[in-house]
Every structure is written in C-alpha cells, then in structure tokens.
Design a protein around this nucleic acid. Structure first.
Lengths: 344, 344
DNA sequence: TTGAAAGCGCTAACAA
DNA sequence: TTGTTAGCGCTTTCAA
C-alpha cells in the first residue's frame, strides 16, 4: 500500500479549483481569498499534503540547499564547524547536504560534481590536505555558484563568487607568546608541526615575531619539530630537558602535544606553571581535564561555520555581477588562560 | 554572465540527435551505438555537462538521498555516528541531508517534514531527549518511507518499515563489572545518571545483575546518582571516601565522571588501580590521556552509523510489502582495559 | 539503433 | 480572485 502522496493536482481536483490557485493558497499568496485559503489549508492538513521540494526546486531553479564538503567529520574541529554550519543554515532556511573527502583529492572532485548535480545554491569547502590542483573548482566558478572556503583555503584561487573564512593563527600564537612573556617567561620553547601546513607555519611565525617584538632572542634549540600528538610532545619535552639551559615555557602548536609535555614535566617534578608554563592550541575538550588545566587558544569553530554560511548568503543575495570577490574573513582567536600558564 | 548549464536538450541540438538518445548514451544504455556514445560523451565533457539530479529524481521518483536527524553534531558520540553514516551512504551511492533537532521536539517535527518534502528515500533518526510523542513519525510510516532509529529509539513504535540500531549498554556494564571482579574487586561502586534515560538504566541494571551473578551483595551506599560530568564525579568520589568502608572500584556510567573520580582518588593518595580501580563508559578520546589511562567501553559509534545505513538500504531493497518489521540490531560494546583497572 | 511524446509536481506568466 | 498554459530537465514507453 504505497500510499502515493497527495499532490497539488489532487487537492485541485478534490476542491474543484485549479492547481495554480492551490499553489498560491499554500504559499499564502496575496490574491487568494481567505475563504479559499482556509479550504485549501484544511484539505492539505487532512491529506497530510507534503509539497514536493524537488519539483518546486526544479521549477524555480533554486534548490534551497547548500553543499558542505569537509575532509572528515571526526576529531574536534570539523564536527564543531559543521555544527555551526548546520545551525546557521537551518536558521536561514537552507537545507544542508554534507560530503566527506576523506582527505582525498579524487573524492573531493567527485563530491564537488555531486553537489553541483544536486543543484546546490552554494558550496562550503574545507580542502583535503592532498589537494594541490584546483581544476575541480573551475566548474563551480564558471557557473557562478557561490563558493566559500573555510579553514583550509586556496590562496591563489580568485573569482567574483569565491571567498574564504579563516582563523588568524598568527595572531593566536602571537597572543600566547606575549602572554607567556608577561608571566615572566624568557626561554619559551615551541612545538611545531611541518611548516608546509599553513596552520603550523602561521603559528610558528607568530611565535618568532612575538619573541623579537619583545626583545627575546630566538634560540633554535627551543624550536622543536615533532609529531603533533601526545607521544611526540613527550619526546620533544624530554629533548628540551636535556638542554644545558632548560626552557621555562612551552607553546605547543596543538593541545595533544602540550599534554605530552605536561606529563613529562610532571615526571621530572617540574612545577607547572611555576617552573614551566605550558600553552596549547585548539582548546580541545580535554584541556579542562588535565592537572593543571591547560591554557589554550580557542579556534572559534562554531563561529567559523556560522560566518561561512552568512558570507555565502551575502554572496547569494548580491548576485554574481559585482566588482571583485568579497574579502576573506579572518576570525580572531581567543586565548584562554588556565592554570598551566597562570603564575599570578 | 550566469553561464546557464548545458542540458540534455542542448547536447541533442548540437549533435542533431534526440534528447532520449542523449539520455541513453549518458547512462550507457545498451542500445546506443558505441559511435554515438563516444560523440555524446565527448561533447558532454567539452561543455562540462552536469546532469540535473533534481530533474532526474523528479522524473524517476527516487531522490537518491537519505535524511539524517540528530539531536546535535557536538561532543563525542554524534559526530562519530554521522561520520559513519556519511561514509557508508557515500559508499552505497546516497547523498546525505543532515538536520539537527537541538534536543527540541518541535524542531524534530519540522525537520522530519523538511526531509519528507525533500523526498528523501529513507530517514535515520536519533531522538531529541524531549520527545515523548511520536505523531510526527506517523506520516513517515504512512508513506512507507523506511525509518531507522539509532541510539535513542522509540520502544513501542512499530511498522513494517521501521527499525532500530542500538548499543547493548546492559552488556557493556555487565562486562565491566565482571572484569572488575576478576581483578579482585569486591566493593564496586557505580556512578549513574538519571534512570529515566535508557542508557543509564541499562548500565545500572547490568551493574546490579553482574554483582549478583557473582555473589556480591548490592550495597546501596555504593550506588551514587550524580551529575555525569567531571565535577559530579569528583563530588561522588568524595562522598564514597567518607564511607566507613570505602569501595575498591568505581564503574562510572560515563568517562567524564570517571575522570573526576580519578582526580579525587589521586588527591587522596589512593593508588589506581591497586587501591581503587576505575572504569568509565564511552571511550572518549581523553581516556588515553589521563594518568593512569582510563579503562572504558567503546560504543562502536561509527559502526552504529554504518549499520544503520545498511539496514536502511536493506529495507529499501526489500520493498514495503513484507511480513513484520526487521528486528532491531543490537551492537556489542567493547570493553577496553587500560591502566586504571588492570591490576595484573 | 533512434525519435516522438508524455509527464514527474510544481510555479508563474498571462488571460479572463 | 481564479484559471489556462507552458515548461523546469530528465526518463521512458511506444513507435519507427
């Protein structure tokens, strides 16, 4: 009994009206009599009429749907951003279609095609880390579908309908180091991931610039490139403790490695933050669970998603004909000082 | 220059063929000559032809899209499940449309309608915790759209096209307690959330049954109902330590409260696991970061998403006419013994 | 092997 | 205020 759904035509026949009147009544169009509207609405209710968005979208040429393409929906960052996107999109009346590239350019390519085929009105993308060629976004640009990159963006890909939302990692790192200096730290070490990744490059540069801005020398021994996980942080910390003059602070480019540093510090009976101040990056959930609680930098994940959607909507509204692409939006990170770096 | 996209009609005109031939060629239909196919494919390539899925879906009556409705995409559990869903759906060739109810029944209702309007072929739902009335799923059932509940399910809502995937919380708890007993623990405390939530109720029951199965008395003093977060765990632990005879193990219904217990135990100089063994539930990421590392129960989040999609597809294939609803699928949890409970 | 024609359900000119 | 008509882009029967 595959109960076919009631259609506008069905309503029209039942009420002896034309489909157009039904359509207008349902969308509360001005020039339909209240009496008719009432009749239509009641019958629609009774028959559990559900408008077929596919048909409406096809006819209107607008699908009311946004496409989202992320590397994955795991870990801390992307779920939060996706949450922000979904929430804001719902608020603005958009549906959201979500794809994962699994950090694979080929998948990314396919998914872009898929989203285009689905007639999404705009696309939000965070790039796979294997993506270096941007041919697959050419079609999006050509068809003037608004495209917003977030977090992992293309630097040199411009178009009147392309924009980006990113976090100011440089600024975040700069704040951290400034804070540590204010706490009286003078030998500030840095754990960094590979510099070909933007996030690490920018955080690293923020570290260097903050040091020199405050007249501190950059001691190469204090820069450690390590695996940015707990184990990597532990190794890096052990390495630092072997130095003739050990550091009095560690700024880690992520929270996991910072936890590693914290654990090694405790093993070596260093008091945190008195002997060694530690600050991480990303404000992962577990930063409030360590002892002492770990200072970190909030990446405004949810805000990023929200902002990206708002930007997309702005592009959608202003239409494709205008001068130049919108400026990228740079979100300010927020330093959260907790016990691990608060010497008071 | 809103470059209108190339359509089948466009291709047809350019090549002097009929739309039907183009359509057949593009879908690699048997009775189109290879020569024609080649010509069509080449032109399609050149014009960056993108099939309009909306139109195809409307015509076919199948949208190729699954709807997902979760309370939210934050925390540990739901992002993981959504990840599993998205991954499996992509593998099976489905698009995925995602909505959040924000734990609000009214939102849930709206979203269900939205998904139906979008002509999704099936719906995956985890209920808002405020949902007690299920009228909004009536329409789904009536129209025979396959419906799979996961994790937070409706107990008494049946239909030939409704099913569920859940975790065996009872079994997980039972395993934990058995393990603790095997480690020599005899006074095993339990932190529980409110029993009107299924997860806590089932874990609580598993705890009780495992105790009595092994001939241990159930000491009411050892059952603590607390806020299931770090602070709640700390308070609960302090309370337990005031008992004339303190427990030698804690099984917490989630990991956050377990961390709280761990911290209080350390403050009181109890050795974990020798003096006090601790086990949590959910296998959150931070369980590997504590010292000692926290034993926990893996909820198979990703597997749950995957299973739910597979089940949905099975329902889709077998069609609406068949005897009785598919049986709910109960996933077996996995106890992960780490340092906090391994006395060896 | 190809084409003609109809129609999925809806909306929006235009006409009445 | 309502109806007529056409068509969004595609697929699919039926006919050639």
């Amino acid at each position: 009994m595959a109960n076919r759904r009631a259609s506008i035509t069905d309503l029209a026949k039942t009420l002896g009206l034309s489909p157009s009147t039904i359509s207008r009544a349902l969308s509360d169009h001005d020039d339909v009599s209240e009496a008719t509207k009432a009749r239509v609405r009641q019958l629609a209710e009774e028959l559990h009429y559900q408008p077929n968005q596919l048909a409406a979208a096809l006819r209107r040429g607008r699908s009311n749907t946004l496409g989202v393409l992320v590397p994955h929906i795991t870990g801390h960052f992307f779920p939060q951003v996706v949450h922000g996107i979904a929430t804001e999109a719902a608020k603005l009346g958009f549906n959201v279609m979500i794809c994962q590239s699994n950090e694979d350019t080929r998948q990314e390519h396919k998914n872009i095609d898929l989203l285009m085929n689905s007639q999404v009105e705009g696309i939000l993308v965070s790039l796979a880390n294997t993506t270096h060629d941007f041919g697959h976004f050419e079609a999006v640009r050509q068809q003037n579908i608004p495209l917003v990159f977030f977090d992992r963006v293309v630097e040199d890909f411009e178009g009147s309908n392309v924009s980006a939302v990113v976090l100011d990692d440089y600024q975040g790192a700069y704040q951290v180091v400034t804070h540590l200096i204010e706490q009286g730290c003078t030998r500030i070490a840095h754990f960094s991931g590979p510099l070909h990744l933007n996030i690490h490059k920018n955080r690293h540069q923020g570290y260097l610039d903050a040091l020199s801005a405050h007249g501190l020398a950059n001691d190469k021994d204090l820069e450690v490139f390590c695996e940015m996980n707990q184990k990597g942080g532990m190794q890096a910390m052990r390495q630092l403790l072997k130095l003739p003059q050990r550091p009095d602070a560690v700024f880690s480019s992520n929270d996991l490695a910072a936890v590693g540093a914290l654990q090694v510090a405790k093993i070596h009976r260093l008091r945190v933050p008195q002997d060694l101040a530690i600050v991480g990056f990303s404000n992962e959930m577990f930063t409030s669970l360590t002892e002492p609680m770990l200072s970190s930098v909030d990446q405004r994940c949810e805000q990023m998603g929200k902002t990206a959607v708002q930007l997309l909507q702005k592009m959608l509204k202003s239409g494709p004909n205008r001068q130049g692409p919108p400026k990228p939006i740079v979100l300010k990170p927020k330093l959260l000082v907790r016990e691990s770096s608060q010497r008071r």
